[in-house]
Design a binder for these strands. Structure first.
Length: 447
RNA sequence: GAUCAUGUAGCGAAGUGGUUAUCGCGCCGGCCUGUCAAGCCGGAGAUCGCGGGUUCAAUCCCCGUCAUGAUCGCCA
C-alpha cells in the first residue's frame, strides 16, 4: 500500500506584492531572460509568470561560477528585494531588484547558441523564422505582451457577458454540416461517416437562444479557404454571441460597443506595461457610428473618386478608405457598416422588411479591418423553408438545426468577433498571424 | 489561384561577372565596481535556396523550380 496524504495549499498565486518585500528575503524560480556579466558580478534578468525582474549577483556575496549560467536556463534564487531605478521597459517591476544571496541551476538549454536572440529590445527575425521557432520566439517580452493583451480580450469578453446575464456555451467542433456553405470546410473521417470541422458555432448558438435567451462562446473555428493574406488564418478564435432581440439588430451594436469598452478599459488598467512596451495607443469609443453599406459606396465614390458601387461587398481597400473617412470626419476608429446586400449574406440572415435586397446585418470596421460580422437572423420556421427553397438548399440535411425554429424561437441575432484580428489591430501588428500563438495558414501546420 | 518582390554564416542585413564574399547580433576566449539594445580587445563560423543555361570564369546575367513576404480573390 502506498497511500499518501498531500497538504492542500491555500495560496498558489504567482502574483507578488514586491513593495511589501522591500528589505526582505524572497525566493523565486524562473528562467533567465538576459544575463550581463561584469567584473564584479552580473545582472541576471529573470522571467517569471507575471513579471520580468532584475536580479543582481555580487561575486563577493555568493560563490557561483557565472560561466555555468546562460540565457534560458531555469534557476532558483534567494535574495533581498531592494529599491532600484530600472530604465529597460521590458522589465516589470522597475522600482526594485533582487540582490541574490543564493542561486541554484535547475535546468539549461541543450543547444548553444540559441538560434535567435531574444535578449534585445526588438526581436529582429522574419515572420517565417518567428513561427518556426515559436516556443522560443514567444519568450521575447514584446511577443509575450501581445498574448497578455490577447488573453485579457478573451477573458473580459466572457467576464462582461457573464455579468450581463449571458451563459457560456461550448458547441461541438465536429459537425454534420457547415454553416456557411460547402467549399471552404475541412472534411474529417468520423468512424464510418463523413463529418466536418465547424466553420462557426452559428447553428448551435442560435439553438441555444431558445434555451437561455443570451449565450456566448469563445472557441476555435476552422476555414478551409485557400486564402493567403495578412488578415486570414485557417483556424482562429471566434468570440461569438447570440441573443434574443427587443429592438432589432441595433441591440447587437450596443452590446458589442459595451463589450469593447469594457475590454479596452481592462487592458488600460491591467496592461500598462504591455502598452508601453509595444508603444501602442488604445482606441476610445465615445459614440457609436453606423453607416449603410450603400452609403459607404457613395462616400467612397464622392470623396475618394473610386467607383465600386456595382460590387456587392467591400474590398479591403474600401474598408481602409471608409475607416480613414470616419477617423477624419468623426474622429472614431470604429464604424459599423449596416445593411449588407442579401445576396452576399448567408440564408439565416434576416432581410430588411422595407427592402428585401438588403439584410439587417452589420460589419464592424476597426482601423481599416473588418473585425466583426453580425446581424438579425430569421426566427420563423416558414421563413427558413422559403429562403432555403429559394436558394435551392437541401432542407432535409438541415433538419436537426431547423427543429429549433419548429419548436418556436424569439427574434434574435448575434455576431462573431475575430480574436486575432482585434488583437492585431489593438497591438498595431501588420499581420494577424502575429496575434496567433501557433498560426495555421495555407502552408503552415506546425509547430 | 493571380501579380510583384525576396532567398548570402545560427539570426538580421550589405555586396560583386575575376585572388581570401562585408557588417551587426548571437557564440567562444580575455578585460571591465551597476548594467539596462552595456562597453572594449581578440577568435571561430557561409559549398551565396535548388537544377539547368550563357561565359575563359556565375553568388551576381538568363530560364526553370522550391520557399518566404506583400497585394488581390474570400472572410472574422
Amino acid at each position: 500500500m502506498n497511500i499518501k496524504e498531500i497538504e492542500i495549499k491555500k495560496n498558489i498565486s504567482s502574483y507578488i506584492d514586491f513593495n511589501s518585500y522591500i528589505g526582505k528575503e524572497i525566493e523565486l524560480t524562473g528562467m533567465i531572460q538576459n544575463l550581463r556579466i561584469l567584473s564584479w558580478g552580473a545582472f541576471l534578468i529573470l522571467r517569471l509568470p507575471n513579471y520580468i525582474i532584475q536580479t543582481v549577483i555580487d561575486k563577493n556575496k555568493i560563490q557561483y561560477p557565472l560561466e555555468n549560467l546562460s540565457v534560458e536556463s531555469t534557476v532558483k534564487i534567494k535574495g533581498i528585494v531592494q529599491n532600484a531605478t530600472i530604465k529597460d521597459n521590458s522589465i516589470n517591476p522597475r522600482f526594485c531588484e533582487i540582490l541574490v544571496t543564493d542561486l541554484k541551476l535547475i535546468s539549461s538549454p541543450s543547444i548553444n547558441p540559441l538560434p535567435i536572440d531574444t535578449t534585445k529590445k526588438e526581436l529582429n527575425v522574419s515572420l517565417d523564422t518567428k513561427f518556426d521557432l515559436r516556443p522560443l520566439s514567444l519568450r521575447h517580452p514584446k511577443q509575450r505582451a501581445i498574448f497578455k493583451i490577447s488573453s485579457i480580450i478573451f477573458n473580459e469578453f466572457g467576464n462582461f457577458l457573464t455579468q450581463q446575464g449571458f451563459t457560456r456555451i461550448c458547441s461541438p467542433k465536429i459537425v454534420f454540416s457547415g454553416a456557411e456553405g460547402g467549399a471552404n470546410i475541412f472534411n474529417i473521417n468520423y468512424f464510418e461517416k463523413k463529418a466536418f470541422l465547424a466553420q462557426s458555432p452559428q447553428f448551435y448558438k442560435q439553438m441555444m437562444v431558445g434555451v437561455f435567451g443570451r449565450v456566448f462562446e469563445t472557441a476555435p473555428v476552422f476555414r478551409a479557404e485557400k486564402h493567403d493574406s495578412s488578415r486570414h488564418l485557417n483556424e482562429y478564435i471566434s468570440l461569438d454571441i447570440e441573443m434574443a432581440l427587443e429592438n432589432g439588430y441595433e441591440d447587437l451594436i450596443l452590446v458589442e460597443t459595451l463589450i469593447l469598452n469594457h475590454i479596452l478599459e481592462k487592458i488600460k488598467t491591467d496592461c500598462q506595461n504591455e502598452i508601453e512596451l509595444l508603444g501602442i495607443t488604445l482606441p476610445e469609443i465615445t459614440k457609436i457610428y453606423t453607416v449603410k453599406f450603400s452609403d459607404v459606396k457613395d462616400i467612397i465614390y464622392k470623396k475618394y473618386n473610386k467607383d465600386y458601387r456595382e460590387e456587392k461587398d467591400l474590398s479591403p481597400e474600401e474598408e481602409r478608405l471608409i475607416s480613414d473617412f470616419f477617423k477624419k470626419e468623426y474622429n472614431t476608429e470604429f464604424v459599423f457598416v449596416t445593411h449588407y446586400p442579401t445576396e452576399k449574406r448567408p440564408f439565416y440572415a434576416m432581410s430588411n422588411p422595407e427592402n428585401p435586397e438588403e439584410t439587417l446585418s452589420f460589419d464592424l470596421l476597426f482601423r481599416g479591418l473588418e473585425i466583426t460580422t453580425g446581424g438579425q437572423r430569421l426566427h420563423k420556421y416558414e421563413d427558413y423553408i422559403n429562403k432555403m427553397t429559394k436558394l435551392g438548399m437541401n432542407i432535409e440535411s438541415f433538419k436537426s438545426y431547423l427543429q429549433a425554429f419548429q419548436y418556436g424561437m424569439p427574434p434574435h441575432g448575434g455576431f462573431g468577433l475575430g480574436l486575432e484580428r482585434i488583437t492585431a489591430s489593438i497591438c498595431n501588428l501588420t499581420n494577424v498571424k502575429e496575434a496567433s500563438l501557433f498560426p495555421r495558414d495555407i502552408n503552415r501546420l506546425e509547430p
